Simulated assay, not measured.
Amino acid sequence: MILNYVVGGALFIWLAYSLYTQITHRENLRESLEQMRESLDKKGWTGIVLVLVLMLFNWGFEARKWQVLVKPLERVSFIRAFSAILSGVSVSINTPNRIGEYGGRVLYLQDENKLKAIAATIVGSFSQLIVTVIFGLIGLFYYIHSLAPRGGSRWLAPDFWGNIVLAAIIVICSLTILLYFRLQIILSVFKRVKFLHKFTKYVQVIGNYKSAELRYLLLLSALRYMVFSAQYLILLDALGMEFLWWQGFLLNSVIYLVMAVVPTIAIAELGVRGKVSIFFLGLLSSNDVAILAATGGIWLVNLVLPALAGTVLLLGVKFIKEK
């Protein structure tokens, strides 16, 4: 935990300084700030309110997913599921790639189901990752063939290596989707491998999901993806960045793909996301200030505010229940 704070803090400071240097050396810095101010005065606050409302839908879809995932173990109301999601965000704030969400969520379940629910939560993350990769592939294809710089030899051209990356991701994505709809394969591995056999009872739940339920989870994941993508684009527009919505969506999907595969913790995530966002969205606009402000705003709305709410909810959770 201490190492996370040290490494994460150092990474954040380095990224923050890099972003500060990059922005302050922009020739159009003053114009960008003025553009942001005028945009906020005209329409920005409406957009910010809409982003806040969509935050409820964002985590609401995730809460519904959690309901479906733990249904084979126990019935959970939507309100309880929503509380579990927010508590998971709170616990995950200082864990790599927010894996601590699992620990926060299972606190709302019966003791005998807590460890079993970890496997269920992983299935939910599996569905969200598939959606992220699919949209990311579409965005990456557009970036490579329309926006990536070209030059040099054929072997070093971005489109050559980009196509190799695309092919590799397509193969990985196809195998992931196949495994997602054949979760029994994972269960059979636990049953057959000797040192994993004793953990079979904790992953047994993944064999209970029907294909229709798995498709429903993918639908919920896709709806959630659309919501938090819309949040970012709305905030960019509110802050005065001028862009075509479909281009913004495609490049934003590449940003989410990169963030899904880059290991980081919440304290450093803002800096990493800022650098990646400026790299891709900077192809559409020179207003780096708006891009960085929107990135920070979404980080606050979708992570920090729910984490604060989750912290309050955790005060009412009994960590050790009397038998």
Rank of each mutant, 00 (worst) to 15 (best):
residue 200 T to D: 13
residue 207 G to R: 05
residue 30 R to Q: 13
residue 275 K to L: 13
residue 229 S to T: 14
residue 238 A to S: 15
residue 174 S to H: 05
residue 279 F to Y: 13
residue 166 L to R: 05
residue 268 A to T: 12
residue 96 P to R: 03
residue 49 V to T: 12
residue 185 I to W: 05
residue 51 V to L: 02
residue 245 W to K: 09
residue 3 L to V: 09
residue 291 I to A: 07
residue 96 P to F: 06
residue 230 A to E: 06
residue 252 N to D: 03
residue 117 A to L: 07
residue 112 E to Q: 11
residue 247 Q to R: 04
residue 266 A to N: 00
residue 43 K to N: 15
residue 211 S to E: 01
residue 307 A to H: 03
residue 125 S to H: 12
residue 243 F to T: 14
residue 155 W to I: 06
residue 163 N to Q: 13
residue 22 Q to R: 10
residue 84 A to T: 12
residue 184 Q to E: 11
residue 80 R to V: 02
residue 107 L to G: 08
residue 256 Y to W: 04
residue 186 I to K: 04
residue 309 A to M: 14
residue 106 V to A: 14
residue 12 F to D: 00
residue 312 V to W: 14
residue 70 V to Q: 01
residue 60 G to H: 13
residue 192 R to G: 00
residue 21 T to L: 10
residue 176 T to M: 04
residue 222 A to S: 15
residue 75 R to T: 15
residue 5 Y to L: 11
residue 211 S to W: 00
residue 258 V to M: 11
residue 162 G to H: 07
residue 282 G to P: 11
residue 88 G to R: 01
residue 176 T to K: 00
residue 109 L to W: 07
residue 15 L to A: 10
residue 76 V to S: 00
residue 185 I to Y: 05
residue 316 G to C: 01
residue 89 V to N: 05
residue 66 W to K: 07
residue 117 A to N: 07
residue 109 L to D: 00
residue 16 A to R: 08
residue 214 L to K: 13
residue 301 V to P: 09
residue 194 K to F: 03
residue 110 Q to L: 04
residue 41 D to K: 06
residue 305 L to G: 03
residue 27 E to V: 02
residue 248 G to K: 08
residue 136 G to T: 08
residue 40 L to Y: 06
residue 98 R to H: 02
residue 14 W to C: 13
residue 267 I to G: 03
residue 158 P to N: 09
residue 86 L to E: 13
residue 46 T to M: 08
residue 85 I to T: 12
residue 31 E to K: 00
residue 119 A to V: 14
residue 309 A to N: 10
residue 139 G to Y: 03
residue 222 A to G: 15
residue 177 I to S: 03
residue 101 E to Y: 03
residue 145 H to D: 09
residue 70 V to G: 09
residue 227 V to G: 11
residue 256 Y to N: 06
residue 165 V to S: 00
residue 186 I to Y: 07
residue 160 F to N: 10
residue 192 R to Q: 04
residue 123 V to F: 04
residue 51 V to K: 06
residue 21 T to K: 09
residue 123 V to Q: 06
residue 70 V to K: 01
residue 219 L to F: 12
residue 255 I to N: 00
residue 272 V to H: 08
residue 206 I to L: 01
residue 38 E to I: 12
residue 261 V to C: 02
residue 177 I to D: 06
residue 178 L to S: 13
residue 33 L to K: 05
residue 189 V to G: 08
